[in-house]
Design a protein around this nucleic acid. Structure first.
Lengths: 133, 133
DNA sequence: AATAATGATACCACCACTGTATCATTAGTC
DNA sequence: GACTAATGATACAGTGGTGGTATCATTATT
């Protein structure tokens, strides 16, 4: 059980890195050099972040990326949504028929509640929060 | 992101099923018939539960399993530990060097805290709780 | 003896995660 | 204008874990 996949983790690191250099243009090469993250993989991740509106990109020589939003508006939970898909965890693994079984649904209910608590907490975490510490 | 793998999920269902028939001996065939879960997979799961001391097994004709513990002593979190391994989530994906980077560790701290909250909650959930509802 | 169960264990298939590779395009530099 | 260094788009690839199946041995009841 891991809350974050590498996708999300790398994205968070990259954004933290960029948050520390606001105004500067950052290339995948910079991130690769300073954070030792695999370069082509980072490219793909940064491109996704750009598509999602979190980064502004500039092509060409001395191109790169800059944050499109203030760090306080970048939420960890949103990165998870982008790279890990829908957060509705704990969906019933079964057809409705079986799911309506009395023995089964209390389990879902518990998991859903635990999930909600977790997601609610993560909703509160922004890039700015992480930068402060 | 799914809190439970099928392993754990099936195990919980099977235990709930058996919790509803305490004293009776239950075979994988019974579970397969009533819960529509894949039979050989269930066998493996039940064997693991037996090894871990959650079930008592009887071999031979009319053999099967019974709960080895009262439902109040069977905790969801322990099933997760058995089938999903160590619950220390959110381990740093990096070598210590990089992990000590200022930009990185606040992320771990947040995730660890969220994880702890989740695990603490799940620690409170027993089979008996699930049977009540 | 036949049957129906578990014990142990090896094997297998699929898929998501974690990348890599390539070609096209763009923008500065010389 | 050619060169270079960046991104855009996209296709491809390796690998490990999840989710199973299969088989043989053993045991107990009929």
């Amino acid at each position: 059980m891991n809350l974050l996949t590498r996708n999300t983790d790398y994205a968070a690191r990259a954004l933290l890195y960029m948050g520390g250099r606001r105004g500067q243009r950052v290339s995948t090469a910079d991130i690769h050099r300073d954070l030792k993250l695999p370069r082509p993989f980072m490219r793909k991740i940064l491109q996704q972040l750009q598509k999602e509106g979190y980064l502004v990109s500039v092509k060409g020589y001395k191109g790169g990326f800059t944050l499109a939003l203030p760090p306080a508006k970048i939420r960890l939970i949103e990165l998870m949504r982008i790279f890990q898909g829908d957060l509705s965890l704990s969906d019933c693994l079964f057809q409705k028929k079986i799911c309506s079984c009395v023995a089964v649904c209390p389990l879902r209910r518990e998991l859903k509640a635990a999930e909600k608590m977790l997601v609610d907490r993560l909703k509160g975490v922004t890039l700015a929060d992480l930068m402060k510490k």
